[in-house]
């Protein structure tokens, strides 16, 4: 067969081209050096450079903030320096059980998120697989999806009081209806060819769903779960501000009452850190699970 030898070379395209194009300009003065431009249009950056730019930009912003606060350009009562925020966070971890509050919040997010995912994944798959189910459920789901979660807080309190159920319910409400439509979309995008190939191999509908359609949609499903988990944190703070005596939202709201701006900001920053960390973990899981892509 003619196509065997060169076949594995397909993956390495593109990378050399930028270098050559840039090199052509430099020929007159310094022929030996070929340096790719850092502003190459739609060109990749070396991994190390990309990382240092990312860290540098974040650090630069922090330094700017610190300077602005230190030199009195802003009222630190409203806009404390990052060093004060960091100090507040350390103090909160030590004296106010911030770690416990963070754990409570994380547990709420994950339990609501898991409940929503366990319900939304089969539901979304069925909606796309059987038009009857899709037609019956789409109008209702679309309607609820557009209701803002805060608008349902009073109702949630009437139904469930101010216990854990209210928070889980609100978080579930915010994620389930979004996720179910995302899952349905993922399933719809599974190429018809995959389904038809499997049909001609003698598979039942259930076998097609389990062995092929689910596997085919899995990468985008994991991506959507990652995005939805982020939204969960948004609703968590709403739920904890309204009715809670624990969790990061409660801590932030309590600090606000005494105008402890550094503590308010420390709570906000902590949410950002937890979000960033869990996102990175899920990204790594994605990379590991889908090496074949």
């Amino acid at each position: 067969m003619s196509d065997a030898p060169g076949a594995l070379a397909d993956g390495t395209r593109g990378e050399g081209k930028a270098v050559m194009a840039e090199g052509a300009v430099a020929v007159g003065s310094r022929p030996a050096r070929r340096r790719p431009s850092r502003f190459g249009f739609r060109k990749p950056l070396p991994r190390g450079l990309e990382l240092s730019i990312a860290l540098g930009a974040s650090l630069g912003l922090l330094l700017l903030w610190e300077a602005v606060a230190r030199f009195g350009y802003v009222n630190t009562l409203f806009f404390p320096a990052p060093s004060d925020v960091a100090a507040a966070m350390v103090h909160m971890f030590r004296d106010q059980d911030l770690a416990w509050h963070a754990a409570v919040s994380t547990a709420r997010v994950w339990s609501a998120f898991l409940i929503a995912a366990v319900m939304a994944i089969p539901m979304g798959i069925l909606m796309s697989s059987y038009r009857v189910i899709g037609a019956a459920s789409e109008p209702v789901i679309d309607f609820i999806r557009y209701l803002p979660v805060p608008a349902l807080v009073p109702l949630a309190i009437i139904w469930f009081g101010v216990g854990e159920e209210t928070k889980i319910f609100l978080l579930w409400l915010g994620t389930f209806f979004q996720l179910v439509l995302l899952v349905a979309d993922d399933m719809r995008r599974v190429p018809q060819e995959y389904v038809e190939i499997t049909q001609t191999l003698g598979a039942s509908h259930y076998q097609i769903l389990r062995d092929v359609a689910f596997r085919a949609m899995l990468p985008s499903l994991v991506d959507n779960l990652r995005v939805t988990l982020g939204w969960c944190w948004t609703y968590l703070i709403i739920a904890e501000i309204v009715a809670a005596s624990s969790g990061i939202g409660f801590v932030i709201w309590a600090a606000r009452r005494y105008m402890k701006t550094p503590e308010v900001m420390a709570g906000v920053v902590l949410i950002g850190i937890i979000g960033l960390a869990s996102d990175q973990i899920l990204r790594a899981v994605h990379r590991r699970m889908f090496r074949y892509l």
Binding site: P191, E193, Y194, E196, I197, Q199, T200, L201, G202, V212, R215, A216, L218, F290, Y292, L293
Partner: peptide
């Protein structure tokens, strides 16, 4: 009748499973 193993399909694209 409905598709079965006797009649196999080969498509132009998406012809093999990437996973």
């Amino acid at each position: 009748g409905p598709p079965d193993r006797r009649r196999g399909m080969v498509f132009q694209s998406y012809s093999s499973f990437p996973w």
